[in-house]
């Protein structure tokens, strides 16, 4: 019994299908709890007022935007090394979710920044990095759609994902070098000096958990769709032959 057994599309579908509704419901409940708690049952920030509460959307979305790319990197490597179709299709399925998370992070960031910095957009390193990440997602997804043969597309997007990851990290540091920026430091860290008080911290954790569950649910759902598409195409090809 090895974990790779679940890389078989049929086995993957059979195993994840019963779990999927639970994950989706879990995500819904967690998000509602977290957001309601965060929006209505936490005090306003003494400096930033109620605008600070957009943080419950902004921070989880930004974390997911980066982590989804990392997940795509891992699944791409698994595809290149072990040739498990589910892995490649999961990477493909995660792309659009990642780009939406990046957009949410950029949009909520703009809404948050406007009253505080007095402008919707500044070329701050963190904002710029997310814009660059957005471009990387865009290129990755465009390559998937441009190539007709499924396995060729999986191979080439995986290579692009690996090379892109290196350049994304390079860009992150290059951008730091280019402009020191006015974005506040990391909102959540495990250092002794927490920069967010516990009252904000617990609902934020709930929101992050909700976003993670939502992502897992969506990725399973979209991977199912991709597997069914491949299956439909495979059956069609056999029929024609």
């Amino acid at each position: 019994m090895s974990i790779w057994e679940y890389a078989n599309p049929k086995k993957f579908m059979a195993t994840t299908a019963p779990v999927l509704p639970w994950v989706m419901w879990g995500a819904g409940v967690t998000l509602v709890v977290g957001l309601v708690w965060g929006f209505f049952f936490t005090p306003d920030d003494y400096r930033q007022g109620s605008t600070v509460k957009i943080f419950y959307l902004h921070v989880p979305a930004a974390m997911m935007a980066i982590n989804i790319w990392v997940m795509m990197l891992v699944t791409s490597l698994v595809w290149l090394i072990r040739r498990h179709h589910v892995s490649a299709l999961a990477a493909k399925a995660a792309g659009p979710i990642g780009i939406v998370m990046t957009l949410i992070a950029l949009f909520t960031g703009a809404v948050w920044g406007q009253p505080i910095w007095g402008t919707w957009w500044v070329w701050d390193p963190r904002l710029t990095s997310f814009l660059i990440l957005f471009l990387f997602y865009l290129g990755y997804m465009a390559l998937w759609t441009a190539i007709e043969d499924d396995d060729t597309a999986a191979d080439l997007t995986s290579v692009l994902c690996i090379v892109g990851s290196v350049f994304a990290v390079l860009s992150r540091y290059a951008v730091n070098f280019w402009n020191q920026g006015l974005h506040q430091g990391a909102s959540l860290s495990l250092d002794a000096e927490e920069n967010v008080a516990d009252v904000f911290w617990y609902p934020a954790l709930v929101c992050i958990a909700g976003f993670i569950l939502l992502f897992v649910g969506l990725v399973i759902l979209r991977t199912h769709t991709e597997i069914r598409l491949r299956r439909a195409r495979a059956l069609e090809a056999r029929m024609r032959a």
Binding site: D150, R238, A241
Partner: peptide, 13 residues
């Protein structure tokens, strides 16, 4: 054969 093994889409059938 029609159902020959080894195709890249085999896992999906």
């Amino acid at each position: 054969a029609q159902d020959a093994a080894g195709g890249s889409d085999e896992a999906f059938l």
